[in-house]
């Protein structure tokens, strides 16, 4: 007898479960979280704090805020950041002053731990929202963040 009651219970609970799935089957459009990704590129906006890649913003005069203090290079756990620097003459005081030559960023090694951006005293580097980083050649993942011929923004001290 328990054989038949088992079958009855099995079908009953199966139908109870199917009432849940059936509800979503009929109202699938409402509350759907699936994003039609490549099609919604125009409207897709990432959150402000999203960690996509490290970028260095420049102003209209091609000036950045990096003083070359190398704090980010020291804190980085993976050796992602490499700063090639030089000593230049400060125009105002005439003293020798550290300035960056190239801010090299190896995206392929970056774990997005945000320690470099956390430690930067002048907010020279920030997070970019771009997440489409796939390339055909891995050398393209090594980037120089400062623009050619760019200079330190006047008044930025670390």
């Amino acid at each position: 007898m328990s054989y038949f009651s088992d079958i009855y219970k099995g079908i009953k609970t199966l139908l109870t479960g199917m009432s849940v799935t059936g509800k979503y089957f009929l109202t699938s459009r409402k509350g759907a979280i699936t994003q039609q990704y490549p099609d919604n590129r125009a409207t897709l906006k990432m959150f402000d704090r999203f960690r996509g890649e490290v970028i260095m913003p420049h102003n209209e005069n091609n000036e950045h805020r990096c003083t070359g203090c190398q704090k980010c290079e020291i804190i980085c756990p993976n050796g992602t950041i490499e700063i090639i620097w030089d000593r230049g003459i400060d125009e105002e005081t005439g003293k020798k002053k550290k300035k960056i030559d190239q801010f090299v960023y190896h995206l392929s090694m970056c774990t997005m731990c945000a320690l470099c951006i956390d430690v930067c005293p002048t907010d020279a580097i920030i997070w970019g929202q771009n997440f489409e980083n796939s390339v055909y050649d891995r050398t393209k993942l090594t980037r120089v963040l400062n623009e050619p011929e760019s200079k330190l923004m006047p008044g930025v001290e670390d």
Binding site: M112, A114, W127
Partner: peptide, 22 residues
């Protein structure tokens, strides 16, 4: 995964990452 997605959005908005948040 549907309900986890809402949490992942919360983490992404506050921490910046969805899984390895640091």
């Amino acid at each position: 995964f549907r309900d986890r997605e809402m949490l992942n959005d919360i983490f992404e908005e506050t921490c910046g990452a969805r899984l390895t948040m640091n």
